[in-house]
Amino acid sequence: MSETSQLKTTPDEGAESQKGKKRDRSASEERLISAGIEIFSKHGYSGATTKMIAKKADVNESLIGRYFDGKEGLLLSIIERFIEDLRSEELPYSAQENLAAELENYIIFKLSTKDDRDCLGKIIIVQCLTDNKFRKKALERIPMFSDPNLLKRLEVLQNGGKIPKSVDLNDICQDLEAYLHGVFLFDMILAEVPEKEVLARARRFVSRYTQGYRS
């Protein structure tokens, strides 16, 4: 093989090698995130160790430091994934004809969802309450947001005259997020209020809240 042909193939081989490394890193990151969710949910943040997570993911423990800057960074990345999933989550109920019905169905859907994310939510709240540095990092990386799926539903209602044009729909979405966070922390975690009562309170909240938004 001539020197010229070697010069032509080396860059291609280098590019393929880089693509392979990126694929390997992406796969390792996904395994670590998946393992982190399981280990954190089972043992809590304090009880989980990078050794346990790496063993579950079947990767070298050093990769947690290299890819996520340690256990804290891994949890923050999991929270980011958690938020991405929430933002892309389709609303399972049909669009409602008025604001009160839409918000009631939305809150019931969010409060009735039971899976590993609820456990992660508890871990996140505990860390934010007990570790100020973690709380600041979490707020920097994961700000409050308006659910784009709910926002679309509200835009349809507003365009149909069911919500006054002067109303900022983002305000409604953010009010609902704040309400849901409060219910999750105080009613469901601290007070362990039965789900039936939580939903009854949610309906009363929606009824009173939407009175100020009627056209």
Results as ranks from 00 to 15, higher is better:
L157F: 02
C119G: 06
P148D: 07
L120R: 02
V156K: 13
D175S: 14
P164W: 06
I123D: 06
P143L: 14
F109K: 01
Y106K: 08
E140P: 00
D171P: 02
D168S: 10
D118W: 06
D171A: 12
C128K: 11
L120E: 05
K122G: 08
N105T: 09
Q96R: 14
T130M: 11
P164E: 02
D171C: 07
L99H: 04
E155F: 01
L120H: 09
K110N: 15
I142M: 10
A101V: 02
K137R: 11
I125S: 14
I163F: 04
G160H: 11
V167C: 01
A95R: 06
P143E: 07
L120D: 09
N105A: 13
F134I: 04
E89I: 03
V126A: 13
L91Y: 04
I107G: 05
Q174F: 04
L103H: 07
L103P: 11
Y93L: 10
L86K: 11
S88T: 01
I108W: 05
E90S: 13
G161L: 12
E155C: 02
K162P: 04
E104G: 03
L157S: 03
N105I: 01
F109M: 12
Y106D: 10
M144Q: 06
K152Y: 00
K114R: 13
I172Y: 00
L180A: 03
I142G: 00
L120P: 08
I125V: 11
V126S: 11
Y106W: 12
E155Q: 15
L139Y: 03
L129M: 13
D175P: 08
I107W: 02
K162S: 07
L86Y: 06
G160C: 10
V156F: 09
G121H: 05
G121R: 03
N149Y: 03
G160R: 15
E140T: 09
S112W: 07
P143T: 07
D115E: 09
C128W: 04
L129T: 02
I125T: 13
D85C: 07
C173Q: 01
K162A: 08
D175N: 13
P148L: 04
L169G: 00
N159P: 04
I108R: 15
S112T: 15
L111C: 05
K122W: 10
Q127D: 01
C128P: 01
D118M: 10
E177A: 14
I123Y: 10
P92D: 07
L176F: 09
A178W: 03
L86Q: 12
L154Y: 04
K133C: 01
P143R: 05
V167H: 02
Y93F: 14
P143M: 06
L157Q: 05
L169I: 05
L154W: 01
K162C: 05
Q127Y: 03
D175T: 14
R117L: 09
N170K: 10
L139W: 01
I172P: 01
A138I: 02
K152F: 00
L154M: 09
K136P: 00
K110W: 00
L151R: 04
E104C: 06
K136H: 13
Q158S: 08
I172S: 00
Y93D: 06
L86T: 02
L86C: 10
